[in-house]
Amino acid sequence: MYNFDFVKPSTVDEAVAALADEDAQALGGGQTLIPTLKQRLAMPSKLVSLKGIEGLDKIFVDRGGNLVIGAAATHAQVAATTDYPALASLAARIGDPAVRNRGTIGGSLANNDPSACYPAGALGSGATIVTNGRSIEADDFFEGLFETALEEGEIITEVRFPIPEKACYMKFIQPASRFPLTAVFVAKFADGVRVAVTGASNDGVFRWSDAEAALNTTFDAGSISELSVDADDMISDIHGSSEYRAHLVKVMTARAVKAAL
């Protein structure tokens, strides 16, 4: 890997200042970034660790009833929470135990890997991604493969999850990477159902609006039995064809609805 400068600021403001340098990059848990650097696929001039910022890993329920998760909270920390079981369950199944002890929600969302778990959790929950400068609705945050609404140097500080009546994350893994081959997050709120799909689409995480509409009518797995997802939009690779992924979207959605708690 190429060498780089390293700073570990203790406030968000310092971090933002450090990220103003050209080719500076934020370092969360590093569980995706470090392997990328090892392959010499990235060449940041400076890494700005977000692990030294006091309170950036806090987790609490705010007065509005949202589960608020600091950007530096690890997957293990989120997995240990009880306020939003489906989200804790999602976090508990990311990577492996050692990865969960380092990897952070902020890092995962900012990276927006098309096969990552958290984007489905955030989009499926209608979460709000809060940065050093603004709040971004999940619906506006994810902009395709590895692309987000974040500006250069903008860092996520926390994510606010409205807690649904019931929800479930159903994941079908790609057998090598253990990332989702296709995974679906279903959340039923008083004002409607959200269905977010990761791992499947060429455009990254997406909401399956037809399923949402059907489930708004009746929240039952049978409601989606006549629906289908357009295979043309799905990823096709050695682990599964686009048709297979389109099929899995439906199967995983139905199973998530059945298992939602």
Binding site: P175, A176, S177, R178, D237, I238, H239
Partner: peptide, 16 residues
């Protein structure tokens, strides 16, 4: 090669 790492070459794990 499309299977150049453990990201794409599926090694059996304890759960498999």
């Amino acid at each position: 090669p499309l299977t150049g790492s453990y990201m794409d070459y599926a090694m059996p794990r304890a759960n498999d």
